[in-house]
Design a protein around this nucleic acid. Structure first.
Lengths: 178, 178
DNA sequence: GCGACTCTGTAGCGAGTGCTACATCGGCTT
DNA sequence: AAGCCGATGTAGCACTCGCTACAGAGTCGC
């Protein structure tokens, strides 16, 4: 049982139960080890969380890479945005979303490791968005930043039960094809 | 020492130290009582957090009401958005922002009381935005929802250190006066 | 004065926290 | 075979957690 083989199991547990409530003994049980061994491998809980956040960011980056290699570029900004909203709303993404907001909270409070992980994930998403911008878009860099802001706003509103409000806003702003 | 007189002190402590880390004894010390008394007044920690979230939402609503009564309506959507971004970036607002992301995280995980509080606060902000929309705006309701989405997206990006990215996006989207 | 009631301080419970001391086991080199 | 070193189990430490039992203090109506 190496560090690397533990991280996916730890990530699964954290996705299901939350990052804030994660304590060593439940984490260890989920990974099939003991708290003793987690400390042995990672040195401290803080270091474990740091490594775990890095691992999560890596998984997220790999997911985006796979999506980029697989998907066809959408023809308009509206199509791109609609696709992203649909993916964010997918129930399968919900555990990831819950984890994401916890990471944002940690970043806002500048807990060690959180800001870096969050920044990396957003940066990766921004790069992916730039690559996905429609061919011939007049300002792919700015447009990607614009869409990123809109998507994250919509995701936050959806998280607090105002998903429809975001939908209406993006429609009214002309970002979504009606 | 009644429930109502305790809530502002509890809120201050939570703003400074976070909601997730709040435990009864430090909370009680901050409010000048004992954990014993907190349980006596609120019944349980869960109920305390619920009441506290309600109180926070109320304070937020009162802040918006005061701002609405005091301020002059901006002339354009861009001005309105710029003013909001400036206010969100104000260091004095940072404790509130940190608390907000924790509330969003709780709402995403559907912890008791969090979703309701978050929903109420966003609803209040939306109403305030509608009232603040420039006179003669062709679609105040839709425009307010659009601005709300943009603002929240920008706030999230700022929380993870991508504030400049959001700024560039809103500029590229034509939402901010250049 | 006296009982009833609300409020509050002290002490403590059982569970869980991160982490450590110590012993052990197995495979490695020499 | 001897010794060494990384990996792991057991037990436990000092502490915090939410919460409670009990006793007292103050105040009210009677």
């Amino acid at each position: 049982m190496s560090k690397e083989s533990l991280l996916p199991l730890l990530m699964a547990h954290v996705m299901a139960h939350g990052l804030g409530q994660a304590s060593l003994r439940p984490l260890a049980k989920a990974a099939g080890t003991s708290d003793r061994m987690l400390i042995y491998h990672f040195g401290s809980k803080e270091a474990l969380i740091g490594d775990l956040l890095g691992h999560i960011a890596g998984v997220y980056a790999a997911m985006l890479d796979a999506a980029l290699a697989a998907g066809a570029r959408p023809a308009t900004r509206g199509e791109l945005l609609a696709g992203l909203l649909a993916q964010n709303g997918d129930p399968a993404m919900q555990p990831f979303q819950m984890l994401w907001w916890e990471i944002v909270g940690g970043a806002a409070r500048d807990l060690p490791g959180f800001r870096g992980a969050a920044q990396g994930m957003v940066g990766k998403l921004l790069g992916w968005l730039e690559a996905q911008m429609p061919e011939g878009d007049p300002d792919p860099a700015g447009g990607a930043r614009f869409l990123l802001t809109a998507i994250e706003g919509a995701a936050m509103l959806a998280a607090v039960g105002h998903g429809e409000t975001a939908q209406q806003g993006l429609l009214a702003g002309g970002l979504l094809p009606s």
